[in-house]
């Protein structure tokens, strides 16, 4: 039962990812990306990792994509450059995509059939307390490193505002 759900949402995720590539209007591409994120969250939820699923929706859809949509909303996307269906850059993109697909295929062939990772059995719920304990015990340093990135972002925003005031 869970397998059916997972394969359904995996197909959905792939379809949405293809639409992000395919669609020309920025707003529709962003919406397809939202759909992709939600399908990924659904896969995590099917695997029992509710924490990751919720964070996927909360951070990627609730924060990142909302800001993307906000930006697209304030742009004029009726610009002619959005209507151009293809450019020459499509050829290397397709080449790279084919290469990635081939590499994945090889990897899938090499993978030993059995031995799933312990704790990742579908339906075995990865609770929030287990997640927070692991997070705060093992990954606190990486988390703090991310705050440096945030600090850089704050400084960049401040500089941009100052530039805007002066110019």
């Amino acid at each position: 039962m869970t397998g059916v759900f997972i394969s359904f949402f995996a197909l959905l995720a792939v379809a949405f990812a293809a639409m992000v590539m395919w669609l020309r209007q920025p707003m529709r591409a962003a919406l397809a990306l939202v759909g992709h994120m939600v399908s990924l969250a659904a896969i995590y939820a099917c695997l029992g990792a509710h924490v990751v699923a919720v964070f996927q929706v909360l951070i990627y859809v609730g924060a990142v994509m909302v800001f993307m949509v906000y930006t697209i909303m304030l742009l004029d996307d009726r610009d002619a450059s959005c209507q151009q269906p293809w450019s020459m850059l499509a050829i290397p993109a397709i080449l790279v995509a084919v290469l990635v697909a081939a590499a994945l295929w090889m990897l899938v062939g090499k993978q030993p059939a059995a031995a799933p990772v312990a704790g990742a059995v579908a339906g075995d719920i990865y609770t929030f307390s287990a997640f927070s304990l692991a997070f705060m015990k093992h990954y606190w340093f990486h988390f703090e490193l991310a705050t440096v990135l945030l600090l850089i972002g704050v400084i960049a925003a401040w500089t941009a505002i100052r530039e805007g005031r002066n110019g």
Binding site: V34, V54, V61, G62, V69, I72, M73, T127
Partner: peptide
């Protein structure tokens, strides 16, 4: 009965913003 109850509430209310923005934009 989800383990991450409050976070679910917050994340779904985040999706709601998309609807209002899309409505105004389109």
């Amino acid at each position: 009965s989800l383990d991450a109850g409050i976070l679910v509430v917050l994340s779904f209310s985040g999706i709601g913003i998309l609807g209002t923005m899309l409505a105004g934009w389109s």
